[in-house]
Amino acid sequence: MKICQFSLTAEPLNTAALSGPLSNDAAGAFVSFEGWVRNHNAGKPVIALEYDVYPSLALKEGERIVATAIEQFDLIGAIACHRYGRLQLGDITVWVAATATHRRQAFAGAAYIIDEIKHRLPIWKKEYYATAPAAWVFCREHHH
């Protein structure tokens, strides 16, 4: 049974707990990715972020993304979790991990998942700036 999980949380991400179910003696590679809240964007100093999510559709889309990655890249397992609510600098916004027999599949699978999350997941980011009013920002390569 392959591990295929997607979740949303308002709490800080516990990556050790998240990766636990991926332990598997058949896996030769584990690749994980963390998105972090950084202190600047497009030349403006950022002091905090807020994510708003459409939960039922985000869970459906997220599970579909992870399942597709497992299928396409022959992964042994994959898990992703996206945070929502108000986040501070340095917080983890999203966590993705993939296991596979060899590293190439694991790297490709993890990259696919984070790319699709950015393009397709119904979740929106508001940036709070030190010197300007807060604004909802769009992914440069958004869904059109």
Binding site: Y51, H82, I114, K118, P122, I123, W136, F138, C139, H142
Partner: peptide, 10 residues
């Protein structure tokens, strides 16, 4: 119905 403006995950 939910209208979905351009998304920004990650």
């Amino acid at each position: 119905v939910v209208f979905i403006p351009p998304v920004a995950g990650g």
